[in-house]
Simulated assay, not measured.
Amino acid sequence: MTHIPDQILRAADQGALFAVNDSGGKDSAASGLAIKSFVDPSQILVLHATLGESEWPGALEQARTHAEHIGAPFMVVQAKKTFLEMVEHRFQTRPEVASWPSPAIRTCTSDLKSQPLKSAIKRYAKEHEYTTVVNVMGLRAEESQRRASKETCVLSERDTIKPKLYKNGHYERGREWLEYLPIHDLTTEVVFGTIADAGLAPHYAYSLGNERVSCVLCIMGCRSDLQNGARHNSSVYQKYAQLEERTGWTFSPSRKTLPELTGIPVESC
């Protein structure tokens, strides 16, 4: 069990909403289990931002299983555009710049996951009259230097709303918004052990050798993850490879094409 910040414990005691972002992956499962250990299930909401065909089959169902295991309600959200539509729009409007997202400019995460999730959480919090929200994410220090530098718990000034008292006497309650990383210091081995100890099974893509599970093909994914995604999701892979070929921009920040990285040729459209 990792150290729980006093600010988070107070939020739990005072009835805050704990919104667990669940991609269907191992870190999401471990995060939900960590929250369950000290928060009443009635204060937990598990959300999954579905990516349609771009996410691994079974990811949504896996996230639902995580929610059921901890006894929390489950919500599915979806952006108004798909990943491929986002890339296509970028190419049509600004063909001179890279069409695909990159590790430095992760519009796929912001537009397809973070923004739809936050919007849904804010609506839910307002409808259920929560004045404190704890946004839970399964980011871990072991994954990258950038994630290692993140604080475990921070107040989001952008999402926090101060209370207002109007001249007519009307009082509008504010909203405190905390960002919390409950498994930030856990290793991959401990994460898998936590899941097993809870009697849960991780998504099947891990048994294929994947390091990451969410998108079938991820810009952050290693070569073996891309190869697995291509082999086991052929139709999706072909759509990506064909769009890569048509735009002239590579999906991977390595500047190698998907066929070069996976060894699987692109079919003619």
Rank of each mutant, 00 (worst) to 15 (best):
W177C: 01
L178F: 02
L178R: 05
L178H: 06
L178N: 03
L178Q: 07
E179M: 07
Y180S: 09
Y180N: 03
L181R: 00
L181V: 00
L181Y: 10
L181G: 02
P182H: 02
I183G: 04
I183E: 05
I183C: 09
I183L: 09
I183T: 12
H184S: 10
H184D: 02
D185F: 12
D185Y: 10
L186S: 01
L186N: 00
T187V: 10
T188A: 14
E189P: 00
V190Y: 07
V191R: 00
V191S: 02
V191C: 08
F192I: 03
G193N: 06
G193K: 02
T194G: 09
I195P: 08
A196W: 05
D197Q: 11
D197Y: 01
D197G: 00
A198P: 05
A198I: 02
G199Y: 05
L200W: 01
L200D: 03
L200M: 10
A201E: 14
A201W: 06
A201G: 04
A201R: 07
P202F: 14
H203M: 09
H203G: 08
Y206K: 09
S207L: 12
S207K: 12
S207W: 07
L208F: 11
G209Y: 11
G209H: 05
N210Q: 14
N210W: 10
E211T: 15
E211K: 14
E211P: 07
E211L: 15
E211D: 14
R212P: 04
R212A: 12
R212G: 08
R212H: 13
V213S: 06
V213Y: 08
V213C: 09
S214R: 04
S214D: 13
V216G: 08
V216M: 11
V216C: 11
V216N: 04
L217D: 01
C218S: 13
C218T: 10
I219Q: 12
G221K: 06
G221I: 03
G221Y: 05
G221A: 14
C222P: 14
C222Y: 11
R223T: 15
R223Q: 14
R223D: 15
R223V: 15
S224W: 05
S224P: 00
S224K: 05
D225M: 14
D225P: 13
D225R: 12
D225K: 11
L226R: 03
Q227V: 14
N228L: 02
N228F: 07
N228C: 13
